[in-house]
Lab assay of single mutants.
Amino acid sequence: PEEVRRLVEELYRKGVSPEQVKKILKKQGIDEREIEKVLRRIG
């Protein structure tokens, strides 16, 4: 979803590592598979 992409990109631009991005967003209840999809697209 758009909102997940925005959150991931925001953290990524701040220099947060992909592993940390995953941890942070998982705590917020976001599906890990969604996060990984976005990270793959960015990375």
Score class of each variant (00 low, 15 high):
5 R>M: 12
2 E>V: 09
36 E>H: 02
2 E>T: 09
23 K>H: 12
13 R>M: 12
1 P>G: 10
18 P>D: 11
18 P>W: 09
19 E>T: 10
39 L>W: 00
6 R>P: 02
38 V>Q: 13
8 V>R: 00
43 G>F: 01
34 E>V: 13
2 E>S: 11
38 V>L: 10
6 R>G: 06
8 V>P: 00
3 E>A: 11
10 E>N: 07
32 E>T: 06
35 I>D: 00
11 L>K: 01
6 R>H: 09
31 D>A: 07
15 G>V: 01
43 G>P: 06
7 L>G: 01
19 E>V: 06
4 V>I: 14
1 P>L: 14
24 I>W: 04
28 Q>Y: 10
6 R>M: 09
7 L>N: 03
42 I>K: 05
5 R>W: 09
17 S>H: 11
22 K>N: 05
4 V>M: 09
12 Y>L: 15
36 E>F: 01
16 V>T: 10
27 K>V: 11
28 Q>P: 01
18 P>E: 12
19 E>I: 08
25 L>K: 00
32 E>S: 07
28 Q>D: 07
14 K>W: 06
29 G>S: 04
17 S>N: 10
32 E>I: 07
31 D>E: 08
21 V>F: 02
42 I>L: 15
29 G>F: 03
31 D>F: 02
31 D>L: 05
25 L>A: 03
41 R>V: 15
21 V>R: 00
19 E>A: 10
36 E>I: 03
38 V>R: 02
25 L>H: 00
42 I>Q: 05
25 L>S: 00
39 L>V: 12
30 I>Q: 03
5 R>T: 12
43 G>Q: 12
23 K>Q: 14
27 K>D: 15
24 I>V: 09
20 Q>H: 11
12 Y>G: 05
4 V>S: 02
43 G>M: 03
30 I>C: 04
4 V>H: 02
22 K>I: 15
38 V>Y: 04
41 R>A: 15
10 E>T: 06
35 I>L: 06
35 I>K: 00
16 V>W: 11
15 G>E: 03
36 E>R: 01
43 G>T: 12
21 V>S: 02
13 R>Q: 13
42 I>T: 04
20 Q>A: 11
3 E>N: 11
1 P>V: 12
40 R>A: 15
21 V>D: 00
21 V>G: 01
18 P>R: 14
27 K>P: 06
34 E>R: 03
28 Q>N: 08
29 G>I: 01
41 R>D: 15
6 R>Q: 11
36 E>D: 14
35 I>M: 03
35 I>Q: 01
16 V>H: 14
14 K>H: 11
1 P>H: 13
20 Q>P: 00
19 E>W: 03
40 R>N: 15
34 E>K: 04
9 E>K: 06
33 R>L: 12
21 V>I: 15
29 G>A: 03
27 K>R: 13
37 K>H: 10
38 V>C: 04
43 G>A: 15
34 E>G: 02
16 V>G: 04
40 R>K: 13
37 K>I: 09
39 L>C: 06
38 V>I: 14
23 K>C: 09
40 R>S: 14
10 E>V: 05
24 I>R: 05
28 Q>R: 12
41 R>P: 13
36 E>S: 02
16 V>R: 07
29 G>W: 02
22 K>T: 11
4 V>L: 15
23 K>S: 14
35 I>G: 01
27 K>L: 13
13 R>V: 10
11 L>S: 01
43 G>E: 15
6 R>T: 08
10 E>I: 07
11 L>F: 06
31 D>W: 02
37 K>F: 03
38 V>N: 11
22 K>F: 07
23 K>I: 15
42 I>E: 05
19 E>Y: 03
17 S>D: 12
26 K>M: 15
24 I>H: 05
4 V>E: 01
2 E>H: 09
42 I>H: 07
41 R>I: 15
15 G>F: 02
30 I>Y: 14
33 R>G: 12
16 V>K: 11
29 G>T: 01
2 E>I: 10
1 P>S: 14
27 K>G: 14
26 K>V: 15
13 R>W: 12
43 G>S: 14
22 K>S: 06
7 L>W: 06
40 R>G: 15
19 E>N: 09
38 V>T: 06
39 L>A: 05
23 K>M: 07
33 R>P: 04
19 E>K: 10
33 R>C: 05
12 Y>R: 11
8 V>L: 04
5 R>A: 13
6 R>C: 04
4 V>T: 08
18 P>Y: 10
17 S>Y: 07
36 E>N: 06
41 R>K: 15
43 G>L: 03
